[in-house]
Design a protein around this nucleic acid. Structure first.
Length: 514
RNA sequence: GCCGGAGUAGCUCAGUUGGUCAGAGCAGCGGAAUCAUAAUCCGCGUGUCGGGGGUUCAAGUCCCUCCUCCGGCACCA
């Protein structure tokens, strides 16, 4: 059994969970479930990022302590993940003692390695907003984008990480590992980014300005810059570092401690590819830790713009769809409609098309098969050979696995749906209702029904990662003990199973009339 | 401005190293069937593969050029 460690970013606890968070996390969940079904020992990590100025300010504005706010927001995220059927193994919070200790240990390692130095940070500071703004944010007018007041160029003491020292090594790593950053277009962008001299990374903020953070081990007057704090969570949760050990035995360099590090996959939106593909790997290099095996940056959902929606002004929140169509249908839409890594636009029409596909192709296949087993064979799957779609099924499984292994989930799920279409065609070709009428048709009918039941068992397996509840429901109705794993599919026996016919897996559903 | 990507049927998109590659799904039209959630299945596309030029026996598939659209260009989590 191989192991698989995958992560989502930890989400900043100053705001409510939204579709961006949900998409990343569902994508991670689908991959985690797929790996488990394939027999891997999976560690699926998500969590919340809880330090920094925005948290500090948001808490103050609500009359809470920062930690009180974070407790509330972490709960909010955990609740949403539960409703979306997220199966994370660990929910990490950067305010956990373990994480704080690992951050301190890692920073100390960087310091001991000579990659930290003291200097001055220069930036555009807004007195009114009490924070720095980027060039992009202030625009040519050089005013803060919130209040519109002029910002000023100021300097303050900061500690810096010698990120520039690792520039060439990072470029080499990306060039020697073409699939390290996917999709390819993001890799190109990172390489383009690295085409210019890399600046060193400011890793601290004066505590006088921001108190809600992890103090630097060597200077309590400064707290760790939130991105550095946040990224380290991936190592914290892996168990690679023992902050209580002697400095040389904590797990940096030398013989590694038994752990889940390096991560097999970091997932994130394309907006934070730079932090994950540049800041993070160079920090790891500086601390003598191996790099993650793969970085996957996905695209954004944009809301399709139509004349209708513009005049009516109705913007649908995909998260709200869950209440109308169910969690599994929303997960299906998100995974099926967006080519992994690319942008996609949400429209109610496309959503309905994908829901109808589920309902009509897959749901109806399940229902008609179970109904026929009940009607013609007293609800017991016959013992006949189940080889009617042997080749098509094997092909579908192979294409599915190629898709998911290659992080083209939409292709994998398209292959699964294609098998369901093929099975519907098989029903039409065999005409089991005619076989049932023919006096000598019994053996043929047995084979038809056994084949269809077996196909449903396979489909339950293929669809489980994306639609866990419906897949379990289908497996139960088929009379299986549970959703089959990939290793079970080859020898999946369906003869003798007692099936149950029940309400449709995907009931009629629609948007409320406008 | 610099770097990168994309422009293929009404819509969303597939199309490895150039040679049945002109395709799939949806929508539309016609038909079949009745086990099933009126759910299914079959048949039907005269698309300048963004424009132009070039290489080649042969180009969505390579080269040049032009047009259009999109993405990235760091400390914002």
């Amino acid at each position: 059994m191989s192991s698989f460690y995958l992560t989502t970013p930890i989400y900043y606890a100053s705001g409510e969970p939204h579709i961006g968070h949900a998409y990343t996390t569902i994508l991670a969940d689908v991959l985690a479930r797929y790996r488990r079904r394939a027999g891997d020992d999976v560690l699926f990590l998500t969590g919340t990022d809880e330090h920094g100025q925005k948290i500090q300010e948001a808490a103050a504005a609500q009359g809470l302590t920062p930690l009180e706010l974070c407790d509330r927001m972490a709960g909010r995220f955990e609740d949403v993940w539960e409703t979306l059927a997220i199966s994370h193994d660990r929910f990490i919070r950067t305010t956990e003692a373990e994480h704080i200790a690992v951050v301190a240990a890692l920073l100390e390692r960087l310091w001991d390695n000579g990659f930290i130095y003291e200097s001055e940070y220069t930036g555009w500071y807004s007195v009114g907003q009490e924070r720095y703004f980027t060039e992009k944010e202030i625009g040519p007018e050089r005013v803060d984008p919130i209040a519109g007041e002029p910002v000023q160029r100021i300097r303050e003491k900061n500690y810096f990480f010698r990120m520039s020292h690792f520039q060439d090594r990072l470029i080499r790593h990306i060039e020697e590992n073409p699939d390290w950053i996917v999709p390819r277009t993001r890799r190109n962008e990172v390489l383009g980014f690295l085409g210019r001299p890399l600046e060193d990374l400011s890793i601290s903020r004066p505590r006088s300005r921001i108190h809600w953070g992890i103090p630097l081990p060597w200077d309590a007057g400064h707290v760790t810059y939130v991105w550095v704090d946040a990224l380290i969570n991936y190592v914290t949760a892996s168990g690679a570092i023992d902050p209580d050990a002697a400095p040389d035995e904590r797990g940096f360099g030398g013989p590694p401690r038994p752990s889940r590090w390096p991560a097999d996959l970091h997932l994130m939106g394309k907006d934070i590819i730079t932090t994950h593909a540049v800041y993070w790997p160079t920090l790891l290099m500086g601390a003598d830790l191996p790099l993650p095996r793969k970085i996957l940056a996905h695209g954004w959902w944009v809301v399709g713009e139509t004349k209708m929606s513009k005049s009516i002004g109705n913007v649908v929140d995909p998260l709200a769809l869950r209440r109308l169509f169910g969690t599994d249908a929303v997960r299906w839409y998100l995974m099926r409609e967006m080519p992994t890594g690319q942008d996609a636009s949400y429209t109610p029409e496309r959503f309905l098309a994908r829901y109808d596909e589920l309902r009509n192709i897959f749901g109806n296949l399940a229902h008609r098969t179970l109904s026929m087993v009940k009607r013609y064979r007293a609800a017991t799957v016959p013992d006949g050979p189940a080889d009617g779609l042997a080749r098509e099924t094997a092909d579908a499984i192979a294409a599915y696995r190629r898709g998911l292994d290659g992080y083209r989930l939409h292709e994998g799920f398209a292959a699964a749906m294609k098998l369901a279409r093929t099975a519907n065609g098989f029903v039409e070709a065999q005409e089991p209702w005619a076989q049932a009428r023919r006096p000598d048709g019994a053996a043929e009918l047995d084979r038809t029904l056994a084949t269809l039941a077996r196909t449903l068992g396979v489909l339950a397996c293929l669809f489980e990662p994306v639609m866990p509840a419906r897949a379990r429901q289908l497996a139960r109705r088929l009379g299986l003990g549970g959703v089959p794993r990939f290793g079970d599919l080859e020898s999946l026996e369906v003869g003798g199973l007692e099936v149950a016919v029940d309400a449709p897996l995907f009931p009629p559903a629609d948007f409320p009339p406008a």
